[in-house]
Write a protein that binds this DNA or RNA. Structure first.
Lengths: 346, 346
DNA sequence: TTGTATGCGTTATCAG
DNA sequence: CTGATAACGCATACAA
């Protein structure tokens, strides 16, 4: 029967191994290189007593909490959920732990930053909620702990930033659509309050021109990321085009898009439902690209081509920057991956 | 300019307020009732110095970490995500923090339990991954900290349990379908390796009989929770029934179900796509009920009726049990809610 | 009610 | 490399 953790302290281990507590501390924390009889005795004693360090004491003395903080807007936010799933197993290997804060608003996110800073986390990773600017608050803490912002645009020279290259994603998307034979394309863009959406909207037009595709100002709308929005936008786009098509099939692609770029997978789902309802075929009549690579993207018919955020690299880079400390902030931009599936290819 | 947290300790506050550190500690921790000049001076000094307690020291001294642990199988698991979003703001109000562990397998979940126990969390909430039995591991720690298991079936008299009354959900579902005019019903059940699925399968049949509905053993299948599974099962169920229907419309409901109960919303999504593809109408021809009340349930056409887990109550009860301590474990079963939407009602 | 003094378990320092 | 000891910041028993 094992003794429960917390029952025994370093003193018990020291006694059992016939060494001083200092030696036990050194052996178990790896600050002692040799692997002689003493080291073995200490490890054996610790094992037998089921000893594990008291983190409170360790943290108090060494001023490092073996804890990293993560702040996200919501666990139902796909990017945040993926980050969580990727981050947790990655950090736990070297016996660190994850302290989580969740908040959608500027006020709550700032509150969480302060809470986690008060906990003396060894590093802080933040996914800012849409429309929230944390630069001022973060700068106040940047000298005391490494801070990594994931996504977003606010630039600070005191905090690190790991962001996703959405422009590259747009380029990849348009290039792919062109190579699939699409001659015209529409963009169901994100919410227009955000600067990012506007920038992507411009990038869309740049790339469309660059690949000599056609688009129309009437096709491209800002809006929320929901299935319903995708459905309604698509119904409006294609709803009364059928009659026109018959007039001249050769120029039909000028009256309705042969491809849809969606700001989000859910929008793409709605679009696919609408196209199905109108008897249009994906990908033969219309090619569709989503964004986020949600698990559901693989479960539609056909499966949805989607932009996958580089979560593994984001996590790896964030942890690297945190390990590097707060005195070497860096701004890193990572390209996402275009996962090609049936919605753009036969 | 505010001084960053962690710069000043209780000693600084005591000096500035002209009192002893003991008094500061008592005032700030609320163990001193009066609100006289001393209390005001202390609070003012703390505010001015932007003081916040050193949790490591506090934890070491008082043997309580002001931290509660949560272990979930994955952040992309809908129930876990909802739990996170509900739990985090609820606990943070009294300045506790959330330590998160994620693991899909027995081994990893046990590892997380041990890690969090070593961190001396004030309480542990666990969503066991499907097919994982943590009873043995949990019992080892149950005397040292309050443990609440959410969902699942393993019963232990040392740990608390808050579970969802799936049987009640099934009863509500079948009753609702009967009241909507369905005469026959099929069940796209969950994975058959789990005891819960088998029990629910039995409950389905009991309720179907109780409401005098018809079902067929060929209709009801175990399977995974995915859109594709829902799609294929539904295609098989209805695919070749059209020809038969014309033979005798009065008994058509014996050859194909007029309602579908799905173990998961994703399965229901797949079923809706399949029905749409076959030209069958929801809810006129077939009524559909999902489970989980995922955000996407509101974005289908028509919107999906679904079983919503009582997340708010789960969180409230879990925290109550943790506050009550480890010496009063309880088993609580909470009824879910049937959210009626367009997929079962016109 | 207030202040003084002790100890929580660990790591850092320093002398051997 | 090892051991003895100080110090981390706080909460609390105890004395005033």
């Amino acid at each position: 029967m094992q003794a429960p953790a917390g029952t025994s302290s370093i003193t018990n281990v020291a006694a059992k191994a016939n060494v001083s507590i200092a030696t036990v501390s050194r052996v178990l924390s790896g600050k002692r290189t040799k692997d002689d009889d003493i080291a073995r005795r200490v490890r054996a004693a610790a094992e037998e007593l089921n000893y594990s360090v008291n983190y409170a004491a360790s943290s108090l003395r060494s001023d490092t909490s073996n804890t990293i903080g993560l702040i996200i807007p919501s666990a139902t936010d796909p990017l945040s959920a993926h980050l969580l799933d990727e981050l947790e197993p990655t950090i736990d290997v070297d016996s660190q732990q994850l302290l989580l804060g969740i908040g959608q608003t500027q006020e709550i996110q700032e509150e969480r930053i302060e809470s986690l800073a008060a906990r003396n986390v060894d590093g802080l990773i933040i996914v800012a909620a849409s429309g929230v600017d944390l630069a001022a608050t973060l700068e106040r803490y940047a000298q005391h702990m490494p801070i990594v912002q994931v996504g977003g645009r606010q630039r600070s020279f005191r905090t690190s930033m790991v962001s996703i290259d959405d422009n590259a994603a747009m380029e990849m998307s348009i290039r792919h659509l062109a190579s699939c034979g699409a001659r015209s394309v529409a963009y169901l863009a994100g919410n227009n309050v955000s600067f990012e959406s506007a920038e992507l909207f411009a990038m869309f037009h740049t790339q469309v021109r660059s690949y000599a595709l056609f688009t129309s100002s009437e096709w491209n709308k800002f809006g929320e990321a929901s299935v319903q929005r995708g459905f309604h936008c698509t119904m409006n786009l294609f709803g009364n085009a059928d009659a026109l098509d018959r007039s001249d099939p050769a120029t039909a692609f000028l009256r309705r898009p042969e491809a849809l770029v969606c700001c989000d997978d859910t929008v793409a789902f709605g679009a696919m439902v609408a196209l199905d309802a109108m008897g249009l075929s994906v990908p033969d009549d219309v090619r569709i690209i989503g964004s986020g690579d949600s698990p559901l993207a693989m479960t539609t018919m056909p499966q949805l081509t989607s932009i996958r955020p580089p979560v593994e690299q984001i996590v790896a880079e964030s942890l690297r920057l945190i390990a590097a400390g707060s005195h070497s902030p860096a701004h890193i931009t990572l390209p996402p991956q275009l996962v090609v599936r049936g919605s753009t290819q036969v």
